[in-house]
């Protein structure tokens, strides 16, 4: 056994290459962390280039670019498109139960916006289609005493909320279409919210219910300290470019 008495064990000779490689690589890692913004943009563009030509889906293994898919329940809920119903209720004169066909019959709106997550990742120029929330609320005839709109997910866990004036914005969609295709299960389909000027957490996925209420009810992530008014670049202590 090599030990203090064995001459072969005395590590006094030779250059300390091991330590240098170790420290050099750690320093490289630290530099990468410090160079965060430009480095992330570099990986984003690399990822976009690879993903554009990738048929395998393995480009999902390359870091830095593209979507991340979060869920707060045990999985990613799925519902049969034909059986899907969106319920609009609360302080409305005409509560609604809308199938996908009913939603498609309402006035259509399309948007192209960057999608910004509060954890830092951003996907540029995402194409969304659906119905303006204001058009859905108009169909349900909102009561004058209403002050806010709550959104509930069929994952049974997630909720979000907007003030009435936020809800009436022209860039708040009830979205059934993303990049010219039905919103996928991953992305919160068949129907999800898209609150374009705010961070991603404000957009409820796997939407089941739109409930008109007297005042704002803090949603899932607000309970963990995230801002109620989640404007991109003007909330949560962040300085991102607005979407």
């Amino acid at each position: 056994m090599t030990g203090p008495d064995n001459p072969d064990s005395r590590p006094a000779t030779g250059t300390p290459v091991g330590r240098r490689v170790f420290l050099g690589l750690v320093a490289l890692g630290a530099a990468g962390v410090a160079a965060g913004g430009p480095l992330s943009r570099g990986f984003n563009s690399l990822h976009a280039t690879v993903a554009a030509h990738d048929r395998t889906g393995l480009s999902g293994l390359i870091p830095g670019g593209g979507w991340r898919y979060y869920t707060v329940s045990n999985g990613y809920p799925a519902v049969d498109a034909a059986a899907y119903r969106l319920s609009v209720k609360g302080l409305v004169n005409k509560p609604l139960t809308l199938s996908l066909a009913d939603i498609k019959a309402l006035p259509r709106t399309s948007l192209v916006r960057d999608f910004q997550c509060v954890t830092g990742w951003r996907v540029p120029d995402v194409h969304w289609s659906g119905v303006r929330l204001s058009d859905v609320l108009a169909a349900a005839e909102v009561d004058p005493s209403a002050g806010a709109v709550q959104f509930k997910s069929f994952d049974g866990v997630y909720t979000e909320c907007l003030t009435m004036s936020q809800a009436m914005r022209s860039d708040v969609l009830v979205a059934d279409t993303m990049e010219s295709a039905p919103v996928t299960r991953n992305h919160g389909g068949p129907v999800r919210m898209l609150v374009a000027p705010m961070y991603g957490y404000k957009s409820c996925k796997w939407l089941s219910t739109i409930r008109v209420v007297p005042k704002v009810i803090p949603g899932y992530w607000e309970h963990f300290g995230y801002d109620e008014d989640g404007w991109v670049g003007r909330s949560n202590g962040r300085t991102d470019e607005p979407t």
């Binding site: 990468g32 410090a34 965060g36 913004g37 480095l39 990986f43 870091p63 830092g120 990742w121």
Partner: peptide, 28 residues
């Protein structure tokens, strides 16, 4: 190290850039 940064970004008052850097370096 990057794992710690990803776990406690608010407690460590990380800038957006550092948070992104930690994510990319952790993944790479």
């Amino acid at each position: 190290g990057t794992g710690l940064l990803l776990l406690f970004p608010d407690q460590l008052s990380l800038s957006d850039g550092v948070r992104q850097g930690a994510t990319v370096v952790h993944d790479a």
